[in-house]
Design a protein around this nucleic acid. Structure first.
Ligand code: FES
Ligand code: FES
Lengths: 135, 135
DNA sequence: CAAAATGATACAATTATAGTATCATAATAG
DNA sequence: CTATTATGATACTATAATTGTATCATTTTG
């Protein structure tokens, strides 16, 4: 019942780390050292973030990754969508298709209300607001 | 990223159905007919609800299940705990043990705030409040 | 060309969810 | 006392999601 998967969590940590960096561009290997996470896993995450337009990348010596937007402009929900798909707290599948009862499920209606509020909260979280949380 | 598993959803639907019934006791097979869900799966769910004290059961002809408390007294979060364990939106495990970064993870702190609010909402949902939602 | 970096893609392991199957036990009617 | 109707306990299996790993190709710079 976890809201955030490891993909997303690592991606956010990487984005935070890049945002804090003095030099704009930082290589994957430097990030591995700072963040202590499995190299090939982080590499894949960085590639995805680049493909989705949250990072820019450059190859070759001196290359690496940089933020494509300011830390204020990168929201958590955006990262979640990339790695976890759209937020659906009350998804209810039955062998790949939706539950036949989904339209009259009373519980689903209640959960949908909670979902709306969670989405509002998530939209308010950005890389910069996460960094501000720190002491 | 689903908040409610099928176990929980089915359990709630069953509890609602029992609560609405005129006769207090209803058999598993009758519930299967009303709820259109896989018999052995529902049976297991009912057994668990009984073991956890949300239902009472009686064997033999005329037997079946009945609510152990009033519909106002059964909360969603109670059912969720039974089938999904305690609510932990920001759990982050690494091979069975907690993520070593869990104590300084800035994102986790943000998610924990959301978790608190979600728990408040969930605690307010009961079988009777779910039934009232219906038109 | 060699070194340092990312890009693309296929594969594998682990865990969680969802579901099935079987046999035992108890209560009731006749 | 035995057949029927019901639940109890428990072991097994299937599917999907998550969490990774491994390999080779491509681009950039010196
Ligand atoms: S959406 Fe399927 S039972 Fe609630
Ligand atoms: S709790 Fe592990 S990185 Fe956030």
């Amino acid at each position: 019942m976890k809201l955030i998967t490891r993909n997303t969590d690592y991606a956010v940590r990487a984005l935070c780390c890049i945002a804090e960096q003095k030099q704009e561009v930082i290589s994957g290997d430097q990030l591995v050292k700072s963040l202590e996470m499995p190299r090939p896993f982080l590499r894949k995450i960085l590639q995805t973030l680049n493909k989705e337009g949250l990072l820019t990348s450059s190859k070759g010596k001196g290359g690496g990754f940089a933020l494509a937007a300011s830390p204020e402009g990168i929201t958590l929900i955006e990262v979640m969508k990339i790695f976890q798909g759209p937020i659906k707290l009350s998804e209810h599948k039955f062998k790949k298709s939706d539950c036949p009862r989904i339209n009259d499920c009373l519980l689903k209606k209640k959960i949908d209300e909670i979902e709306k509020e969670v989405i509002v909260k998530l939209k308010a979280i950005t890389i910069s607001s996460i960094l501000k949380n720190r002491r």
